[in-house]
């Protein structure tokens, strides 16, 4: 630094000696967030693009098909128009044959929002270096997350097996439930998008559970306490809230509108 160059005019001595300390000169955090948290935000941004692509595809395909125009009560499944979600998702475990539109998905939504709350509580406990509280809230989050995933498994199973009556397909046979090529609820793409969108979301919930399990083990072993901070819980928390956030959109665009 202090060697003199003969090829250029030099600034005054004082400004050479002073270390470069601008915002982007290194050694500090321009966004006042740690590297790990910042990268988690950027990962979540890219993940948001993926989910947005899925939901946009749903919107495109829904508008490419005809909409059901008759009376809401007279709705029957047909591949001629896009189904009304109230009539597809209207069953509840243990209440066979009862028409409860969107009741189960409402329960699932509540479970996921609640798991988000217990996650913030875990992060908050981490700020206070309260190991026992972090453990407690991580366990609650794991429990609600696992419950949500089980509910989704039931939802999938019901969707795949179909209703008692089934639907008469164009070739005259009765078809029950759904797969990627055929479904009783409406156009082929309706079931495909159901599997892909809720499946991709469910995979995210599963990854979240794996990360939460890791956090719980590391908290119990005192890893974070020795490290002096619970930032890992915060980062996993960001991911978990994102999963909840995606569900908020899936819920509206897939089940409500």
């Amino acid at each position: 630094m202090s060697t003199t160059s003969t090829t250029q005019t030099l600034p005054t001595n004082a400004s050479i000696e002073r270390p470069r300390s601008g915002t982007w000169d290194g050694g500090n955090e321009p966004f006042k967030a740690s590297y790990g948290k910042l990268m988690m935000w950027f990962f979540l941004l890219s993940d948001a693009f993926t989910f947005a692509a899925f939901l946009t595809t749903y919107g495109l395909m829904r508008h490419r098909h005809l909409a059901y125009t008759g009376d809401h009560k007279d709705f029957v499944f047909s591949s001629a128009y896009w189904p009304i979600p109230d009539h597809v998702f209207n069953s509840f475990p243990g209440l066979h044959g009862v028409d409860l539109p969107l009741a189960f998905v409402a329960l699932m939504t509540m479970i996921l929002i609640f798991s988000s709350v217990t996650m913030v509580l875990a992060v908050e406990a981490g700020h206070r270096m309260d190991k026992a509280d972090v453990q407690k809230w991580l366990l609650w989050t794991l429990l609600f997350g696992a419950t949500f995933l089980s509910c989704q498994a039931w939802e999938w199973s019901h969707f795949i097996h179909g209703t008692d009556a089934g639907t008469k397909m164009l070739d005259g046979t009765i078809f029950y439930g759904a797969n990627l090529q055929m479904n009783q609820y409406g156009p082929v793409l309706f079931a495909d998008l159901f599997f892909f969108i809720t499946g991709f979301h469910g995979t995210h919930v599963f990854s979240g559970l794996v990360l939460l399990t890791y956090c719980f083990i590391a908290t119990t072993n005192g890893t974070f306490e020795k490290r002096g901070h619970y930032e890992m819980v915060e980062k996993v928390g960001l991911y978990w809230h994102f999963v909840d956030l995606v569900w908020v959109f899936v819920f509206t665009f897939f089940y409500l509108v």
């Binding site: 948001a48 693009f49 947005a52 946009t56 919107g59 495109l60 395909m61 508008h63 490419r64």
Partner: peptide, 17 residues
């Protein structure tokens, strides 16, 4: 920007339909 994507592609969907 994703709002733009969504509006554009839903309009496109209606046009295809």
């Amino acid at each position: 920007l994703l709002i733009w994507l969504m509006v554009a592609l839903i309009t496109e969907g209606s046009a295809i339909g």
